[in-house]
Amino acid sequence: MLTKRIIPCLDVKEGRTVKGVNFVNLRDAGDAVELGAMYAAQGADELVYLDITATVEGRSTFIDLVRRVAQTINIPFTVGGGISSVADVSALLHAGADKVSINSSAVRNPDLINELSLEFGSQCIVVAIDTRYIETPNGMQHMVHTHGGRKATDLQTIPWAKEVEERGAGELLLTSMDADGTKNGFSLELTSIISGNANIPVIASGGAGNMEHFFDVFTAGKADAGLAASIFHFREIDIPELKQYLADKDIPVRLTR
């Protein structure tokens, strides 16, 4: 049976994991390759590496990191952060990334989604959507945001999700900026609407605080995958334990041990 995926997300700056990690058994908890390998060994189904470096030098450091990750781990991984052209994507895929995630650049230039999916195939193009529920002239609406959720756009989230699919996205990474960091659970209603409308997988992100939240997002939220960062980094949720918990509740997951 096709399984629900658990995806740890690693924010990377100058080749090192940031946002803090708390693993006593790692030689170097900041090493993004070592941390990714450990998650893969624990049964993570996929990894996301987000480059939060802004400098040109950081960019080449990130490509070098992507190459080392590809040489080390044997599960799929997606890379994102500052990708805005066919050339950027080409460099990352050649370095060994399985998928790339684009966000602000897709909002700025939606044709980029078409160009990338034609050039590289839909299967490796993930479109990330950061969304907030805000007051608009037409009442409360789910609106697409950029710049880490700080800047509102004039795009409504639900039609935008359909548009990016039609333009050739292979997967959606939906982050509720309202839920992100709260540990109160994923944004179930919106995730369910978007996943129910979509014929491509939806990765839910933002708000995971406990194991039950993953159960909720895979049932009520209809998500195909659940993504989280700090709760894995700080070992508030252990991946093998999470997967066993979900399996016990009849959620199809890949058990590796």
Partner: peptide, 10 residues
């Protein structure tokens, strides 16, 4: 059931 079939299956 979405098409593509994407993810881990047995």
């Amino acid at each position: 059931l979405k098409v593509p079939h994407m993810g881990w299956n047995n």
